[in-house]
Every structure is written in structure tokens, then in C-alpha cells.
């Protein structure tokens, strides 16, 4: 069992009977949706496009209102939500921006993260000059330097190649063992392999709309268990 799994598990977010419909739509996006997210843990929200992953994530982050049901959040939870299209302000160099937004006591982490994410060479550049993959990593870095307990990563590494993505996820799990993450991705193998709990979201006409599947929650010290991984992937595919 990894170090993270040995820690005490606390319930962080509880969603009960959520019902939601876009203002311009007749059909419900969520119907009596309930789920739970615990801390610590690197979790995933998985599901086909258009099923409402981003909307659910934004509801949890408090960015979407107008739904019925209840979302209970641990009182001291600092929730951050980040997505892959975010940009840094164009008027300053990446290093200046990171220096501006990094709390003083997190400065050592800044160096560590930029090194492990492979973006040290990008610090002298402006955001617009970076590749899409570098932009994704730069954006995620600044979120990881903030005070948070729960970080929702909405396709935050969508433009990063698979190998680098694995490195980054493993780094995050190693560096933030006491935090909770909700990783939104379409990559079934990735979520099965690295995530602790995979919340598989389906359309509102299916019941239950969301299913919890236990992932392999692999760390850089674990030896891959291929049959178990295949089993988890199969479960995810069946649930979705």
C-alpha cells in the first residue's frame, strides 16, 4: 500500500440528488446525481463528451449555480478548478508571473515543480510563445503553488504527450500526498492506472448517473499489475 493510502481518509465533497438543466435546454443534464469525493487521493472524473463532467466540476467548485440538490463541502476545503485552455497574462514573462503569484513560503516548490515538469527552459518566455503542452504544464504549475486541498484538473494536461503526462501525475501524487485531486480525462488507461477512485459519469437517462470504480492508484514505487489494470479499465468501459 502506498504512503498516501495509509493516511486517514476523510470525506471532502458530498453531492446528493443533484438535478440540473442548462438554461437554454429542455433536457436535464443531471438527474438525482449523487457522489462522494474523499481526501487525500488522486481521483478521476471520466465519461463521454457532453455528459456534464465540466459542469459537475464547476458546480463543485462553486462556479455554476441554479441546480437543485445539495453539495456538501468540508468547511476548510480550498477548492481550485483549472482547465486546459487557461492562459497566463501576456504582458509578463512566465517566470515573472510565477514569482508574482507564488506565496513566499512556496518558493522552493516553484523550483522543484518547474524542474520536474520540464518547463525550466520556458521561464524566460512569454506564455504565447510556448507550445500547447508547455502552456498546459505552466498553467498547472501555478495552481499547484497555491494553497488548496482539492484541485480539479479539467483536461489540464490535454496537450501534453503521454509519457510526460505520466511523469507529471506521478510527481503530483508524490509531492501532494495529503491533497485531493479530481482529474478529468478521456484516457481510460491513464485514469485506471493512476487514480484512486474513478467517478464514471453517464447521461441523465441512465441510473445511477454516476458510478464509483476503484482505480489502481499506482505510484512511482509500485510495480504495475497488468491484469488488475485491465480489469479496472474493463469496469470503467462497462460503467460508462
Amino acid at each position: 500500500m502506498s504512503q498516501a493510502n495509509r493516511r486517514q481518509i476523510t470525506m471532502l465533497i458530498e453531492c446528493n440528488d443533484l438535478n440540473y438543466r442548462y438554461p437554454s435546454s429542455q433536457a436535464n443534464l443531471f438527474r438525482n446525481l449523487s457522489c462522494r469525493i474523499s481526501i487525500p487521493g488522486f481521483h478521476a472524473l471520466f465519461g463521454p463528451s457532453g455528459v456534464g463532467k465540466t459542469t459537475l466540476a464547476k458546480m463543485i467548485a462553486g462556479l455554476v449555480e441554479g441546480f437543485s440538490g445539495k453539495i456538501t463541502v468540508h468547511p476548510d476545503t480550498g477548492i481550485l478548478y483549472t482547465y486546459n485552455l487557461e492562459r497566463l497574462p501576456g504582458w509578463s514573462l512566465a517566470k515573472d508571473h510565477l514569482a508574482d503569484i507564488t506565496p513566499h513560503d512556496r518558493m522552493p516548490d516553484l523550483k522543484k515543480l518547474t524542474e520536474s515538469f520540464g518547463i525550466q527552459g520556458c521561464l524566460e518566455s512569454r506564455f504565447s510563445k510556448l507550445s500547447l503542452g508547455q502552456q498546459n504544464r505552466m498553467n498547472l504549475t501555478r495552481y499547484l503553488l497555491q494553497d488548496f486541498n482539492f484541485l480539479i484538473m479539467d483536461e489540464s494536461l490535454a496537450n501534453v504527450d503521454e509519457a510526460t503526462r505520466e511523469v507529471i501525475i506521478l510527481q503530483i501524487k508524490q509531492l501532494f500526498p495529503q491533497k485531493a485531486f479530481l482529474y478529468i480525462s478521456h484516457n481510460v488507461m491513464e485514469v485506471a492506472k493512476f487514480c484512486k477512485i474513478i467517478l464514471v459519469l453517464r447521461s441523465a437517462d441512465k441510473s445511477p448517473q454516476i458510478t464509483e470504480i476503484k482505480g489502481q492508484n499506482q505510484t512511482d514505487q509500485d510495480i504495475p499489475d497488468h491484469p488488475a489494470l485491465e480489469q479496472t479499465m474493463l469496469e470503467i468501459v462497462h460503467a460508462s
Binding site: L80, Y81, T82, Y83, R87, W91, I101, N139
Partner: peptide
């Protein structure tokens, strides 16, 4: 939104910053 979101999420947004972002963009 793509730029302002971070500052809003982290509670750093000020009206000066918002104006600066929108003018710059």
C-alpha cells in the same frame, strides 16, 4: 475567462487587474 479564471479562483482579482487584462487582450 481564460486569463481571469486563475485570479478569480485564487482571490487575486482586483478591478485594476481585470481592466489591465481586458485592455491587453
Amino acid at each position: 475567462s481564460d486569463i481571469e479564471h486563475f485570479f478569480q479562483m485564487t482571490g487575486r482579482m482586483t478591478w485594476q487587474l481585470e481592466v489591465k487584462i481586458r485592455i491587453f487582450e
